[in-house]
Every structure is written in structure tokens, then in C-alpha cells.
Design a protein around this nucleic acid. Structure first.
Lengths: 226, 226
DNA sequence: GTAAAGTGTAATCAAAATGTAACAACCATG
DNA sequence: CATGGTTGTTACATTTTGATTACACTTTAC
């Protein structure tokens, strides 16, 4: 799942710069030039909202309050304020809070914040401690390990990601391309056969359960129906 | 009883951001844009007061003195100070269990402090000597030391914090970023490799138990399953 | 049944991640 | 203003993982 970010600011230049850079980081970026425009979006579909405090009729604060109080959304919000701070190097931390950045800010800084916020919400919400199960498999996301009948099986990152994908959507067939898109970042391009090799290694580690992962010739891989 | 917080600062944006975020944390937040305005409030009804040092006619310090000496209140005060190079004119300032944060700060930091202060005043008297154990490790939070088979091992602060984090969540994998965020809270940014070095030093002190701390390539560090 | 396409997997080399010593900066303390 | 302890960074050694290729084997299409 790609991470979606919404930028709400009436300065078009700024929006473009942010959009360009955040997209460069692999985020899917949407832009709104006013609070009204932002309200037309499906706000709950974003992982982070960057919000200018000073804007046309409806201020960023009002919008934030609407988002929180009326729409009852808990999307993390990062405020952009015009008060110029000097050098904001920042890394504070506390769970569940929004944040603010003073203009002028460096793009680097914004990206750092966005990453931090996403990181935080990831490890906070249902993501942490998430355990996927399929037959005798128990995939422990926090521990990045697989447990089969109380036995721990260590997986490499790629193996973990492949198994995670499959167990998250059992009985769905994933083409090699699907997997490449989901598991490998855009900059990295690998051969389709590479997927096969990883699946083979994963199967080997699964021992007698290896055949739970099945291949459908011409289509891809999937988990056998329970 | 809900926890009441008063924010006193002449920067309206900042006040709003703090109010918004603290309310998001479940606090009841009141705002005053000047010392005079603050004095009209029922100051003893707050559990914490966030106070800007630099403000109009009456400075934050003066207000604090009035609160402490004339009104004889012991409400915890957290000062917000403008960060200037030759700081520490503050260190001599000991009006009790107060705290101060330099601007520019991150909202997360403020919230963390507020939580800490409230926590502290709540559990006053009852000393919290939390002890974590994992296999033959016994981590004494009060003494900030590790005991293995009756033997005391002195740890540096960072070592202690890393071990504490791991022992508090055994078998969970912490990325270097996780650790940086949790352990280097203040406005310090360190390289990810710095975490590695600390882990290495910690392992060395743990001697033959060093391998209890394991690394998972691509993910981070965790405590070996017992 | 046979050819073509698709898949399984061992072996190999390259790349990434980790372990750690060494050094420099920092800081509290006497 | 030395001093020892702590901390952050770098550089290099080592380990682990990852990508590709080659060849054996299976499935599919006709």
C-alpha cells in the first residue's frame, strides 16, 4: 500500500515543491489550495496531512478542528506556520501528537517529519503486534518472524515480505509483477525470476509446509486453499 | 477529574497549536496571551502551566515568581524559552520541580514533558522502582544498573536505555529509527550506525550473554526468544 | 507425444548490512 | 584545565542477504 499525503496550502509554488519532493520519496501526494478544496477530498484516505495555518477564509486550525471534531478523523496533521523560527532541527517524540513546522523550512525537514509521523502511526495502530495466521503458520510482524507449531523460523526480509503478502491475502494469486511492485521499491528493478528464487528459498524454510505456497503456471503464486 | 493545562504565550499560533494537540491528548486546555490575562484565571485549578519566558510587560519569570511567592502555589511550571546561544542563565533557577523547553521545540516534546510532569506529580512519594527481567538479566530502573547472577554491571545511559527498551518488549524487533526516536528524544539527530556502536558496546559488557541481543538484517535489533 | 513455455533450485557473484576498533568531541568533576 | 568517562563518527573487516544464471524438471498447447 502506498502512503498518501495531502498538502493544503494556498501558496502554489510551495505546494509544488513539497509535492515534487515528497513524491521523490515515494509518497503519493495530493494537493489542495484551500480548506474548501481539501474538504472535497476523501480525507480519511491520507496517512498524513500537511496543513498551512494561514489560508483564505478557513484557517488551517479551523480545518483541523473540523477534521478532528466533526469528521472524527485521527489522521496525523502537521501544521505549517508562518512564524519564522531560526534553525528547527527536530526530532522530539511523543505518541499521537500532531506537529508543526515553521516557515521558512527546509524540504528535508518536512520530509523528516512526514517520515517520523508515518513511522509513528505505523507502529502505533493495528500494525504493531499484528499477527497473521494461516493454517499452522503464525506470522509475527513485531518480531519479524514466523512461528509454526511453537517453533520459530527466521526469515530474511524478502522472505518475510513475500509470506506477509500471501498470508495477508490468502487464496489470491499474485503475479511476479504484483510482487515486484509491492515488495521492491520503484528504483529497484529485478528479474521476474528473482521472485521465483525467493519463493523457492521460502518454501525450503517452511519444510514440509512448503507446498502450501503454490504456483499457478502463467499467473503466479498463491496460498493453497485451507 | 480531567487534567487541566494552562498555556501562557503571546504567540497566538503557537498557543493554538499547543491547545489543539494537548486537547487531542485528552487534556483540558486554557490559553492566556499575556501574564495579566493569566492572572485572571484560577491558577490553582491547573495541573500544569506552560509559560513563555519572553512576553510583553510581565515576563514569564515574574509571573512564575508571583505564582510561587505571592500566591504560594506549587503548580508545576514548564517554561518555554527562546533558545539563545548563551543559555543556562536558567540553571540557577530553582523554584521547585519546574522544567524548561527551548524554542523552537517540537510539539511532541512539549507533550512528552507535560505527560512526564503529570506522571511525576501523580506518583509523588511512591518511588517507582520498576525492575525488568529477562533470562538472567535483572534491570533495575531505580539504580540504573544491570544485575546478572548477583553481579552488578554498570551501564552508560545510552546502554541502559537500549537494554531497557529491548527488555521492555522482548522478541520485538526495533529498527534503528525506532531506537533513535525513543532514545534520542531531544533535538539530536544521530546516524543510524551510532545505534550499532552502542549495541556493540552493550554486547561487550554483557560478555557471554551478549548474543542475547540479536540483529535482524534489514530490520534492526531484538532479544533472542527465551 | 512433442515442442514451447513455465517453474524449481543449486551455484555463483555482487551488494547490502552488520560488527567493531580507533579516534575525536564533549562534559562533568575535581 | 587536566582527567576519565561517555558519546558520535568513521573506516575497515566480516557476515548476511540478494540477484542472476544455468540447467533440470513440469506443465501447457497443439
Amino acid at each position: 500500500m502506498s502512503t498518501r499525503v495531502l498538502v493544503v496550502d494556498d501558496e502554489e509554488d510551495l505546494c509544488e515543491i513539497l509535492q515534487f519532493n515528497l513524491e521523490g520519496e515515494g509518497y503519493e501526494v495530493d494537493v489542495a489550495y484551500s480548506a474548501e478544496e481539501a474538504l472535497k477530498k476523501d480525507l480519511k484516505s491520507y496517512q498524513v496531512i500537511l496543513l498551512d495555518v494561514m489560508m483564505g477564509k478557513i484557517s488551517g486550525f479551523k480545518l483541523a478542528k473540523m477534521i478532528r471534531q466533526e469528521m472524527k478523523l485521527s489522521v496525523p496533521i502537521i501544521f505549517l506556520t508562518a512564524k519564522d523560527g531560526e534553525n528547527n532541527t527536530l526530532t522530539g517524540f511523543s505518541l499521537g501528537a500532531d506537529d508543526y513546522i515553521s516557515k521558512p523550512f527546509s524540504v528535508r525537514e518536512v520530509i523528516a517529519r512526514v517520515k517520523a509521523v508515518i513511522q509513528r502511526t505505523r507502529s502505533e495502530g493495528g500494525y504493531e503486534g499484528k499477527k497473521l495466521t494461516y493454517r499452522e503458520f503464525e506470522l509475527d510482524d513485531a518480531g519479524k518472524q514466523l512461528i509454526i507449531n511453537k517453533k520459530v523460523i527466521e526469515l530474511t526480509k524478502k522472505e518475510f515480505e513475500i509470506l506477509y503478502l500471501l498470508m495477508d491475502n490468502p487464496s489470491r494469486v499474485f503475479s511476479r509483477e504484483d510482487m515486484m511492485n509491492r515488495i521492491w521499491t520503484d528504483e529497484v528493478v529485478v528479474m521476474a525470476r528473482t521472485v521465483d528464487v525467493h519463493v523457492a528459498r521460502l518454501r525450503k524454510k517452511l519444510g514440509k509446509y512448503g507446498h502450501y505456497i503454490r504456483s499457478k503456471p502463467g499467473y503466479g503464486y498463491y496460498l493453497e486453499h485451507e
